[in-house]
Design a binder for these strands. Structure first.
Lengths: 207, 207
DNA sequence: ATAACATTGTTATTAAAATAACAGTAATTT
DNA sequence: AAATTACTGTTATTTTAATAACAATGTTAT
């Protein structure tokens, strides 16, 4: 499985895996496409198509082997060594993100947090050390962190983004309301709270 | 402008407006499509196409009238009376969301927050009263809240969603990792932190 | 006055994602 | 043994989104 998968398929694979890990604890070993579909509230065709794309094949009348499927998805979306993540900006959102990860076993590990507030620097949040933002480039380089989450206020986002690129970051999730511009070798995902809520409001109004 | 616009166009309209409001304060009255494009790091064609879809037209060689464009976008995405929003779950994420809104002038107003923790109930967060989650249906009905943000842990998300539907909610933004199932008259937008980060990690790995 | 330019608005094309259609087949029923 | 059923896997179609192509036209330069 070397070919790059569609964006949306990758998202669903992550969700399939989580749903399957949970399903597994019920003791069942096999699952049908329509059962996976129900867990995610999507269609069975979509599930089968995604599974086709990753080259796994179930067995007729039995469905998919839960553990096998979990493993295959792991081979596709995880790296052997795992990947390190930094959170930049330890406001409520930054802490929320760190909270999401604490306890979860995943191949993504948040290994550093950054902030400019001296009261936050050198403290530990959800097990993660917070450094002064001046150390950003240095620590990202030294620790080999490849992914960053930007959760600073808009006015600082651009500067942070530049520094991250300088430090050799490979993927960025931007929560600030400021749209960023990244070189093409950096994968950028943006999420703008106000925009998303205004969109919801628009479709509420229209419906 | 009655026709329903494409999802992505609506998102960009929200961003155009914010960028324009900011641009306006520089004192300029007109703006070209490629200037808007630069602000958002997208293409000028995309901008012109979106503007075409909303039926506004600029003037050749002068571009668009900033204020007019702001107003037209407002007519499309806002309602006259504004829309009320509730935040369910006052953890770090819930507080982050409330923070995003405090001070912003928008036609969306967060008017209620809900939590089950008695220490949080009956306090005010960022100017918003926090009620016990038992009051959810009652308050949403009485206040005419049409939009809800779910920021509770996964295990509670489904119950909250059911209650919201019962209360007559029209749009939901779900931050919990639990995929929700909503009747078709409720607009649902999901955002799953782990999934999104795993996707970023996948494309980082591939690049 | 004519040509070149810079810009908008629109149609045409391509790309990505979702959905539908259906072929194949092992298990079960008749 | 034949027909039916309940699934998977794949191709075809449709829908949505993005990009490209280009016509139209006022402005500036020559």
């Amino acid at each position: 499985m070397n070919r790059k998968l569609p964006d949306k398929t990758v998202e669903r694979l992550s969700q399939y895996r989580r749903a399957l890990l949970n399903y597994k604890s019920s003791g069942k070993h096999h699952i049908f496409s329509h059962e996976i579909a129900n867990l995610l509230h999507i269609t069975a065709v979509q599930v089968r198509r995604d599974i086709m794309l990753i080259g796994y094949t179930g067995t007729l009348r039995q469905g998919y082997d839960v553990q096998d499927l979990i493993d295959i998805i792991g081979k596709i979306i995880d790296t052997k060594e795992g990947q390190k993540v930094a959170v930049v900006g330890i406001g409520n959102l930054g802490r929320a993100i760190m909270g999401y990860f604490s306890g979860k076993r995943t191949r993504l590990t948040i290994t550093a947090a950054f902030d400019s507030n001296p009261e936050k620097v050198n403290r530990i949040y959800a097990g993660i050390p917070c450094y002064h933002i001046e150390k950003l480039t240095e620590i990202i380089r030294n620790e080999g962190i490849s992914i960053a989450v930007i959760s600073v206020p808009g006015e600082f986002a651009e500067k942070v983004a530049q520094d991250l690129v300088m430090a050799g970051i490979k993927g960025v999730l931007n929560f600030s309301p400021k749209p960023l511009n990244m070189p093409s070798h950096v994968y950028l995902q943006e999420f703008d709270m106000l925009t998303i809520l205004e969109k919801v409001a628009y479709f509420v109004k229209k419906s």
